[in-house]
Simulated assay, not measured.
Amino acid sequence: MSAMASLPATFTTGTARDSGLHFRDLYRLRDEGELMELSRGVFRKADAAVPTWPDLLAVSMRAPVAIVCCVSAAVVHDLTDEIPREVQIAVPRNRRPPRIDYPPTEVFRFGIESFESGLTEVEAAPGEHVRIYSQERTVVDLMRLRGRLGEPLALSALRRYLRRRDARPGEVLAFAEELGVLGSVRTAVDAVIAE
């Protein structure tokens, strides 16, 4: 099927339609095992390389503006051993939050002015990247949301980050200042460094 050959490894129903693949054929290919459905309307070719982060890939296809954040970002950056029950993503406050049932997703609404601060990417599958916050931004987000996500998680991630050779505490403090939590983050950084 030439339409199938022109599609990327991971694609949406809309992309398939634009390539000339009818939705009936799409679901037939899924039922025959040539496609895997990662989420509603998100498909991956069965013969494509196995993704490292399939849930993040699926969610990013459904919500391309969203950025992987908090515990989900901490897992990717190896800042925690905790396994989140939901993929955590951030969207700007002025955008309607996406409703994604599978994979389970938790949406945070972050301020527009700092929404893309600390934005980076991770390769979720070979050649396919997902928007994610940097290690430093993730540490600060965990600290500022510690009332919701848990103080032990936030402090553990901060401790783990600061013990790395490539740690940049100054950058953590710069994000903390930008996000309005400099006092509490500085106190926590000083306490961890003093340990």
Rank of each mutant, 00 (worst) to 15 (best):
L35F: 06
R24M: 03
S60G: 07
A48K: 06
V50T: 10
R62P: 08
D25N: 15
D31T: 08
L26G: 03
M61Q: 11
A46P: 08
F11I: 04
T12I: 09
A58K: 04
P51F: 13
L26M: 10
M36Y: 06
A63D: 11
M61T: 06
R44G: 09
R28M: 03
G41I: 11
A48S: 08
S6A: 15
L26R: 00
V50H: 14
D31M: 09
V50R: 15
L29C: 11
V59N: 00
D31V: 14
T52W: 00
L29M: 13
T13W: 01
S19P: 02
A49Q: 08
G33R: 08
E32P: 04
L35S: 08
E37H: 07
M61Y: 15
R17I: 06
D55N: 03
F11A: 09
R28Y: 04
M36F: 10
H22Q: 09
V50L: 13
W53F: 07
E32T: 10
K45L: 05
G33F: 01
S39P: 12
A63E: 01
R28W: 05
Y27F: 11
G41W: 01
L21R: 05
A58C: 07
A9M: 00
F43D: 11
R17M: 04
L57V: 00
T10E: 12
P51R: 01
A46W: 13
F43N: 04
V59G: 02
D18G: 03
A63H: 09
